[in-house]
């Protein structure tokens, strides 16, 4: 059997999406600007908080800015490549459009996960680059090494994969539920936990919560691991977390693939 060129197909998807985005250029621009301004407000909030405290859970201002840029990298990638597709999936299930995806001679998960690229979301990616360039040199006692250049992007990507797994698992549940309106809300509330340094989850409630979101649903790993690698000295705890992140990514990807295929088996088309 002839296998389609997955890279070629993906590049075509990306190109088509770009053409579509460029048809409504003003809208594209406004979309990019508004997602950037949302992050700038976030930044404003933390700048405000740091007027009152020298650090939050041992993260000083510039270290925390590195944390925020990491959040922006990961989120902009997830929003650009996977978010529009996950939202589309529940729509495909409801209208029966998934039939067409199943008929195509290509892996269904690949097809429904990457069909559409939302280029406007990458606006935050460049803002994050600027912020990183501004914040990193200001971290006290920081020495840039080759390892930073290699490991940081790798771990950002691993984070993206973990979030993708969570997202596609949630989206796959819409096959069982028929419709999943609160999917997006649920996604927002879950990932809300990942946007803070894991050290803030302390105490009777905090520690179990931290363990839950590190070891069961590994969303705390997503941003914390790359941000720590860049902003902190390499210690034994970091090494452990870095190793664990690799394992967590592999398991999440495999787990979400399993859930997706299981869900597909229960798909019973809709309308005509």
């Amino acid at each position: 059997m002839n296998h389609p060129s997955y890279l070629g197909v993906f590049l075509t998807f990306a190109r088509n999406s770009l053409i579509r985005d460029m048809t409504f250029r003003a809208n594209f621009l406004i979309e990019a600007v508004s997602s950037v301004s949302w992050m700038i407000m976030n930044l404003g909030f933390y700048t405000l908080v740091y007027r009152f405290t020298p650090s939050i859970a041992d993260w000083d201002k510039y270290e925390f800015f590195v944390f925020i840029s990491t959040t922006m990298f990961v989120n902009s990638l997830v929003q650009a490549f996977f978010m529009p597709n996950a939202q589309e999936l529940s729509e495909l299930v409801r209208t029966g459009g998934l039939d067409y995806a199943l008929l195509k001679p290509i892996d269904t998960q690949f097809l429904v996960s990457l069909q559409r690229v939302n280029w406007a979301s990458l606006g935050n990616f460049f803002v994050a680059l600027l912020l990183l360039g501004y914040a990193v040199p200001k971290i006290e006692g920081f020495e840039l090494s080759v390892w930073h250049f290699v490991l940081y992007p790798v771990y950002v990507l691993l984070g993206v994969f973990i979030l993708y797994s969570v997202m596609i698992t949630l989206a796959a549940t819409s096959i069982w539920l028929g419709r999943n309106q609160s999917l997006y809300d649920f996604w927002f509330y879950i990932t809300n936990f990942s946007r803070y340094p894991m050290e803030i989850y302390e105490g009777t409630w905090g520690t179990p919560l931290r363990q839950l979101f590190t070891f069961v649903i590994p969303i705390l790993v997503v941003i914390n691991v790359p941000a720590r690698l860049l902003a902190r000295q390499l210690g034994s705890e970091q090494v452990f977390l870095a190793g664990f992140a690799v394992l967590a990514t592999i398991l999440s990807l495999l787990g979400s693939r399993w859930v997706f295929r299981k869900a597909l088996l229960s798909y019973r088309s809709a309308s005509s």
């Binding site: 908080v49 009152f52 405290t53 020298p54 650090s55 939050i56 859970a57 041992d58 309106q181 609160s182 809300d185 649920f186 509330y189 809300n192 936990f193 946007r195 803070y196 050290e199 803030i200 989850y201 302390e202 105490g203 905090g206 919560l209």
Partner: peptide, 28 residues
């Protein structure tokens, strides 16, 4: 039904706010 559940979920961000501000006050 959907409505009541949605309302309850809307309080979830408060949980992270409590942790964040506890950490801020501890550090400050």
């Amino acid at each position: 039904g959907d409505f009541a559940l949605g309302t309850l979920m809307r309080f979830l961000p408060i949980v992270t706010q409590i942790f964040l501000w506890t950490a801020v006050f501890a550090s400050a």
